[in-house]
Design a protein around this nucleic acid. Structure first.
Lengths: 207, 207
DNA sequence: AAACATATTAAACGTTTGTTTCAATCGAAC
DNA sequence: GTTCGATTGAAACAAACGTTTAATATGTTT
């Protein structure tokens, strides 16, 4: 029994728990208990714990990534061969990920961030496989904007941008916030975060 | 028997394995096998698996952190009350961590990075406890340098800097590198990485 | 109504986990 | 040389792990 869609419930519970505890520390019994389904349902629907992870990974990454491609296609078509503005390019890369933070499930970006750092070999390969075309296009576009910078400089700065973005996605406002003179609500605001990150990376890329 | 110093061997093995696989995915049997010591030695010397983690955390963080404090004291004394240069302040924060990458055990920065993202509650508390004074001083110093920026802006940009730095520390050159026209040796060079990161963050902080 | 693939259940599978036990061994102080 | 605390060794502990099994229920097709 257990509700109309067992598979979706498992995915939802896994998303929450993987975000909170990480993949290796989360047991299938925790997942199925939270999803209120039978333990064997994971093996039945996903084959294994790793199969569940792989399906969750694509569900997390694919939408963000294809939105990036879509925005990039759109912007490059509108530019008609001219280089994009650096700030626009960076926003195209960052905004789809940060937007998940405010719109959809708030666990998703946290999983997204954690997966980037997950030492699990299958996940690493999957991430790079999905992200490689996007990164290649991003580097190419940035080379047209900043022709005086070497490919190595742009690549490593792209990595800095990803690191800053992931750290923001994984950022719980409650943690480091007992600081004097800090208005927590300001930092919690998604638009503030997004604009700050875009500004930081835009300046950093050409700095 | 098992060598002159069982405790050190366990710490070394744990550092390697935690860096490769993360804390939850690493078993005590793996650690003691690599360290070539008896399984019970972990409980004897560290009380528990978590005790081992906690001791490893301080061993990883403390030297980096106290070096930051030392450099900051030194620079502020030399400045005689005048604000530091932004680039110098950022270098003070970044260089001690990146230097571990080139000088000491190459696993250490990877653990350091991974610990920042470890959802383990005890570790999170420990990290913030150790890092809080340093971050507070860094924010205060940056406020003197960039008085036109709000405390919220500086705090969140400090977070971006930490994210970029951690992502660099966790960065394995072999992973994303099969890219056309990229000279891998350039990116592998620690001085190149450090200078790029300092430039990126310096520009980003005031961008 | 009978047959069917699909889905869910409860129970158990064999392993592996972190930790403990207790005897054996070590290294110095007396 | 003996005593004593500190350390190591081999073995076992209960608990939790991912996965599998066989039986039951469900809903659709003949």
């Amino acid at each position: 029994m257990s509700g109309p869609n067992t598979k979706q419930r498992i995915l939802g519970a896994a998303r929450t728990l993987f975000a909170e505890q990480g993949f290796p520390a989360t047991s299938m019994r925790q997942v199925t208990a939270l999803a209120e389904v039978n333990l064997a349902a994971v093996s039945y629907h996903f084959g294994s714990k790793e199969g569940l992870l792989r399906e969750l990974v694509s569900a997390c990454i694919e939408p963000i990534n294809s939105e990036r491609i879509r925005l990039l296609d759109e912007a490059e078509a509108a530019a008609q061969g001219a280089p994009l503005k650096l700030r626009d390019l960076i926003r195209i890369f960052i905004e789809p990920a940060v937007r998940e933070l405010s719109e959809n499930n708030k666990d998703m970006p946290c999983v997204f961030s954690r997966l980037h750092h997950e030492p699990h070999p299958g996940v690493e390969a999957m991430m790079t496989e999905i992200l490689a075309p996007t990164i290649a296009r991003f580097i190419a576009a940035s080379q047209r904007i900043l022709p005086h910078r070497s490919a190595e400089e742009l690549l490593i700065r792209g990595h800095f941008m990803i690191g800053a973005m992931l750290h923001l996605l994984d950022f719980k406002c409650e943690e480091l916030m007992p600081m004097p003179g800090i208005h927590a609500a300001t930092i919690a605001d998604y638009d503030f975060r997004l604009e700050q990150l875009v500004s930081f990376c835009t300046a950093g890329f050409d700095g």
